[in-house]
Write a protein that binds this DNA or RNA. Structure first.
Lengths: 150, 150
DNA sequence: GATAGTTGTAATATATCACATTACATCTTT
DNA sequence: AAAGATGTAATGTGATATATTACAACTATC
C-alpha cells in the first residue's frame, strides 16, 4: 500500500503557486500541466487545502492565495488536509474480527493498539518538522545548479 | 490508505503460536478462528513468514515452529516479511509524470525524495524497537487482569 | 498402506479506492 | 454578453485487499 499521491501533488502545487506567483496565471490547467495530473484532481486537492485554511480561492477568478508563508506550512498540515491517512482509521488496518473468547484474540487490541499508535506518531511528528519552504528552497537550488551547467 | 492487515494478522499469529504451543494443535483452521480471518489468508501470511526465515512449517503436518524467540522478532521484521509497504515503491505514492520542462516539475523529485525517505525511515526505525514478545507480554498481562476480576 | 488431517497454492469473486474524465452550474473579468 | 475560471457531481477504469473454492502434495495414524 502507499499513501495517496494527493500528498505529493499538494506539495507540488503549493511550491508552484509560490514559484510562479508573479509570472503566470496559475490556474488548475497550468498546475495540471506542471504535475501531469488531471485538472479536476488538482481542483479537489486545492479544495481540501482551502478547507484546511492553507489557501483561499475565488470562484471564477484564476489563482489561489496562500494564507500564510510556505515556511509555516508543514508536511503534517498537508497530510491532514488531503486525508493521506484517515484520522479515524489510522495508519494500520487491524483485522476486524479477532475472536473475543480466545485469550489472544480477546486481548490483542489492548496489547497492540498503543504500539501501532506510537509508530504512526513518530512518523507524524517528523512530518511536523518539514515545511513546504524546505522543498521550495531545494527546488530553487536545483534550478540554479542546472542553469550554471550551461 | 492503510497498511494491509496482513501486518496485524502476522503479529496475532505469532503470539498465538507461542501462547498455545503446548496446548493445542495450532493449525491454519485454529488461527483462522482466533483472528477471524480466512484460513487461506492465514496460510499465505505464514508462507511469507517462512520465506523470511521467521518460522518453519511442514507440508501435511500441523503447526509451525519459530526459528527464534519472539523477543528477537521485531515489528520491522514482520513489516518486511509481509510486504506491508513495497520496498521498491516506498511509503509515498509520488505522482508519476511531473513535467520535466517545468522548473518545479523538473526538480520536484530532487527536492522531495530525500524528505519522504526520512519520514519513512523514522517510522521503520521505531518498528525495529518493538518486538512480538512485547505484545505477548501485554496479552498475558491482560489475561491475568481479567482472571483476577472474577 | 489406506484414510484423515494438513499445508501450499492457483484461480476466481467481490468490494473498495485512487485517479481520470465528462459535464455543467456558478462566478469573475473584460 | 462573452470568455475564462472554479466547484462539484457522476461515471469509468484499473489496482489491490481479502474471501473463497478447489485440489495436489505431504504426514501421521489406525
Amino acid at each position: 500500500m502507499q499513501i495517496t499521491s494527493r500528498f505529493t501533488i499538494a506539495i507540488h502545487i503549493l511550491v508552484a503557486i509560490d514559484y510562479f506567483k508573479d509570472m503566470d496565471r496559475v490556474n488548475s490547467e497550468f498546475l495540471a500541466g506542471s504535475t501531469g495530473v488531471n485538472p479536476v484532481i488538482i481542483r479537489t486537492v486545492i479544495s481540501r487545502l482551502r478547507e484546511a485554511g492553507i489557501l483561499s480561492t475565488q470562484r471564477g477568478s484564476s489563482g489561489a492565495n496562500l494564507t500564510r508563508p510556505l515556511s509555516e506550512i508543514t508536511f503534517y498540515d498537508i497530510y491532514r488536509a488531503v486525508d493521506s491517512v484517515d484520522e479515524q482509521e489510522g495508519l494500520f488496518h487491524f483485522h476486524e474480527q479477532p475472536h473475543p473468547d480466545c485469550p489472544v484474540g480477546g486481548n490483542i487490541h489492548t496489547a497492540l493498539d498503543g504500539k501501532l499508535d506510537d509508530i504512526q506518531h513518530v512518523m507524524e511528528e517528523r512530518m511536523k518538522t518539514i515545511t513546504v519552504q524546505d522543498v521550495a528552497d531545494d527546488v530553487l537550488k536545483a534550478v540554479r545548479e542546472k542553469s550554471k551547467e550551461e
